[in-house]
Amino acid sequence: MNNLRGILVVGETEGGKLNPITHELLGGARELVKIIEEEASLLLMGEELAPVAQEGISFGADKIFIVESPLYRDYNPDSYAHLICGVCKKANPRLCLMGHTDLGREAAPRVSARLGAGICMDCVELRVDSSKQSFVQTRPVFGGKAMAEITSLPGNIQIDTVRRKSMSPISPSVDRKGEIVDLTNEIDPPMIRAKLVNQRRQESEGIDLEKAKVIVAGGGGIGNREGFERIKELAQLLGGAVGTTRVPVDEGWVPHSLEIGQTGKIVSPDLYVAVGISGATQHVTGILGSKYIIAINKDPDANIFKVSNLGVAADYKEVLPRVIESLKTLIQ
């Protein structure tokens, strides 16, 4: 592919607004286009996109590609892959950025397979190499035990998914100018072979993990479903959200939407309290952005203490009930 130019961000919206990951990707794209001296564009698909397009411009997009159709209102693996391919062929970006989200995890590999693009999944850092001809992406591999630095081929389109919270949005400005390009009639209708027949959200009580300032997370050491009642109680007292590791999810004590880590959510609270968590790299990779980490584990050699600021080497069953009782009297 020749004449590649600029960076295309695949936008995600929720309730008529851009998703935070899209703000982050636009912020990241701005940093990169400053160096390559090209444009950052944003793809928006779905319905009633005009206000979202303005939001995209204020968060750093120079150009907005719009595909407005009920076909793209809800995510579908076939229609989205088809659409993103179509827009990449029109826009010819050097780099196409998606979030490492439900959408990106599924669409990016398919789009790259169809376009012959390079691909890096779950990038946490992205820069332009010294020749300004290729991109250098850093991504955790081996469950977070190592970091790989990977360069793209000059002259070939590169597709990356980016982990949440690894890029920073710019402060939005309504004075920013941008161009809106409507591609609705230029994309053939998709062929849908995977039909969505049912959709269920898992009840997540209380605070959204990804936005929470305080998280109390319980691991395999909690032992059973009842034990999680203590975790919930502590989370409530601290004004925080409940999180977990793979083990309690596998055991069926808590829903998978609370899992934190490589295959779960990426969190960055001010305070992370890890209870009965061993500190496997696949979990730790998801909590590195936490400002302060407190760990309670009965094994003083547990790996979690290596990444914590404060440690309590004790049985949580001895400690938490006492802590909860005192907090109750102190707070009320």
Partner: peptide
């Protein structure tokens, strides 16, 4: 991330 989807193929 937050639930389940069922597809028919």
């Amino acid at each position: 991330t937050d639930g389940f989807e069922t597809f028919e193929l």
